[in-house]
Amino acid sequence: MPEVVIRTSGLTKVYQETKVPVKALGGVDLEIREGEFTAVVGPSGSGKSTLLHIIGGLDYPTQGQVEVGGHHLNELNDRELIDFRLEHIGFVFQAFNLIPVLTAKENVEFIMLLQKLPAKEREARAVQLLQEVGLGDRMHNRPSELSGGQQQRVAVARALASRPQFILADEPTANLDSKAAANLLNMMAEMNQREKATFIFSTHDQRVIEKARRVITLEDGVIVSDVTKA
């Protein structure tokens, strides 16, 4: 069995900024093994984004521990978290993932530039990844010239470009029609195999959930079911 690479224990998140404090996560204990392709599902407001943000080092838990790829995220400061995200996490958000003034290829190259990879390598990998996500002919288009589904594919290519150990996708299909959503999920599943990255994506779209091997269901910030297909 592959080793556990993500481990949370008693993960709690309370948003204090509002008049009435909101408990977004209420003690989440979770283990995820290397190479898994996991869906986090649940209704809107159940805490999916909050969980992914904390695992991805974008936010701190109010209580509890989070260990990702051997890093204790509670102990990292803002700068260290940015470095952690750059090296270990590939993010795909719901929409508008891309830098609007850069082309598809430049967007994919950009994250490797942040990693200070040499230009040749950046270029080669960007081209290869865009071909793999089926956008070999749209590389020089800007995001505004791409469809929603195409934009999300570029976002996946970018997330993979930095060779992260984890890909975290927060409702990546929320703005896509069902065909584009299915395509994206198939592609992500394929990438999961090819790039050996551990994928976690959140969704409340029943058709997409079926693509996942493991489905974790959240309700009001707690895990109500955790099913792994045979």
Binding site: I89, F96, A159
Partner: peptide, 16 residues
Amino acid sequence: RYEMGVMIAIGMSRLK
């Protein structure tokens, strides 16, 4: 704002 949020999220340092 949103776009800069994405950039910092994917690992661009604030300084850059």
